[in-house]
């Protein structure tokens, strides 16, 4: 898995608005930190299924 299926790029969510679309986690329901976005995007060999506690908890819940 390269990119997280829960990753979205949004310009607006709730009261937050940005000029450039930013990484948004549909599970956490919030914009994510730039460092975490590197996991979401699978950058540098990172994998959401291994490196993201939000993804892993959601996967366990789905099971």
């Amino acid at each position: 898995m390269a990119e997280c299926p829960h990753l979205e790029y949004r310009e607006t969510a709730g009261e937050q608005t940005f000029e450039t679309a930013r990484a948004y986690c549909a599970v956490a329901d919030e914009f994510v930190q730039p460092m975490r976005a590197d996991i979401c995007t699978g950058r540098y060999g990172l994998a959401p299924s291994e490196d993201c506690e939000i993804y892993r908890e959601a996967a366990e819940t789905d099971q």
């Binding site: 937050q16 930013r22 460092m35």
Partner: peptide, 10 residues
């Protein structure tokens, strides 16, 4: 920094 961004403080 390299952790948070405008989502924490615009």
């Amino acid at each position: 920094g390299g952790v948070h961004g405008k989502e924490a403080n615009p």
